Simulated scan of single mutants.
Amino acid sequence: MNTVLHKASTRGHANHGWLDTNHTFSFANYYNPERMHFGVLRVLNDDSVIGGKGFGKHPHDNMEIVTIPLSGDLAHQDSMGNSSVIKNGEVQVMSAGTGLFHSEYNANSDKAVKFLQIWLFPNRKNVKPRYDQISIKSISLKNDFYQVLSPSKDDQGVWIHQNAWFHLGDFEREKTTHYQLKSPENGLYVFMIEGDATVENQVLNRRDGLGIWNTNNVKITASANSKILLMDVPMNI
């Protein structure tokens, strides 16, 4: 088993006034040659946008983009004609493919919107751009992981052009579970959204990340009430 630890305090950070952001991997003005990606997981941004502000129209191509709101409401518009608001308890995905434009704004004027934005390299380039947004409230579980993303449009959650699976879990203190990786070619990136947990022998705190590979099973024990995101991704780009 191999591991790489990314403590929350070691992430790239920028505060633009309207945007307070932390970058687990190199992004924008944050560059660390040792923090470029974890397998096909290229971007893991932890963003907070103040009321009424946001990202104006900007382009993407050949990237799978996943947004997981943590609190507040995020307004989205894109060149495919989609206009929506996403909030906690939902997951949004875009396959940028041949190219698209989109904007993201805080839908409220009186409170921040907080969300994770995650980019993955696709396993197919130049696909037709695609958008999806789902509620995950009906599939959420207590003290276990539930799938919110996969490679299959027929499986639970949203789907992307990559051999990747995402799971979320809300755990009470002292609860233990095991996660079985979906493919021997994959590694697991564990991101502590809230709380504390021990993953194998490594203690993780709020917003810490741990990458694990060359194993097929991972033991996770919550040491406090915790919310955990698992990203099961190919290690070879």
Score class of each variant (00 low, 15 high):
4 V>H: 10
7 K>A: 09
9 S>M: 08
9 S>K: 15
10 T>A: 14
10 T>C: 01
14 A>K: 12
15 N>D: 15
15 N>T: 08
16 H>E: 01
25 F>G: 10
30 Y>I: 08
30 Y>D: 02
37 H>E: 01
38 F>G: 09
39 G>Q: 02
40 V>G: 04
44 L>K: 08
44 L>N: 07
45 N>I: 11
47 D>W: 10
47 D>F: 07
47 D>M: 10
48 S>D: 07
49 V>M: 07
49 V>L: 08
51 G>F: 04
52 G>L: 12
56 G>W: 01
57 K>E: 13
58 H>K: 11
58 H>R: 13
61 D>V: 08
62 N>Y: 10
63 M>R: 10
68 I>K: 02
71 S>V: 03
72 G>Q: 04
76 H>P: 08
79 S>C: 09
82 N>A: 05
87 K>S: 15
93 V>A: 15
95 S>G: 10
98 T>H: 06
99 G>D: 00
99 G>F: 09
100 L>P: 00
100 L>E: 07
104 E>F: 11
106 N>H: 12
106 N>Y: 09
107 A>G: 05
111 K>E: 14
112 A>T: 13
115 F>L: 14
115 F>A: 12
116 L>G: 01
116 L>V: 06
119 W>K: 07
120 L>S: 00
120 L>Q: 09
122 P>Q: 04
125 K>V: 11
127 V>K: 13
130 R>G: 13
131 Y>I: 07
132 D>P: 00
137 K>F: 02
137 K>W: 00
138 S>K: 14
139 I>P: 00
142 K>H: 01
143 N>H: 07
145 F>R: 00
147 Q>D: 04
147 Q>S: 11
150 S>T: 14
153 K>W: 10
155 D>W: 08
156 Q>V: 15
159 W>L: 06
160 I>L: 12
161 H>W: 08
165 W>C: 14
165 W>S: 11
169 G>S: 03
170 D>N: 12
171 F>C: 03
173 R>A: 10
173 R>N: 14
175 K>W: 08
175 K>T: 15
177 T>A: 10
183 S>C: 11
183 S>W: 00
184 P>D: 13
186 N>V: 04
187 G>W: 03
190 V>Y: 05
190 V>N: 07
191 F>G: 06
192 M>N: 04
193 I>Y: 07
194 E>Y: 12
195 G>K: 04
197 A>C: 05
198 T>R: 13
198 T>F: 04
198 T>V: 13
200 E>M: 09
200 E>Y: 01
201 N>V: 02
202 Q>T: 15
203 V>C: 05
216 N>F: 06
217 N>P: 01
219 K>V: 02
222 A>F: 09
230 L>A: 03
231 M>A: 05
231 M>V: 03
235 M>T: 07
235 M>A: 08
235 M>N: 06
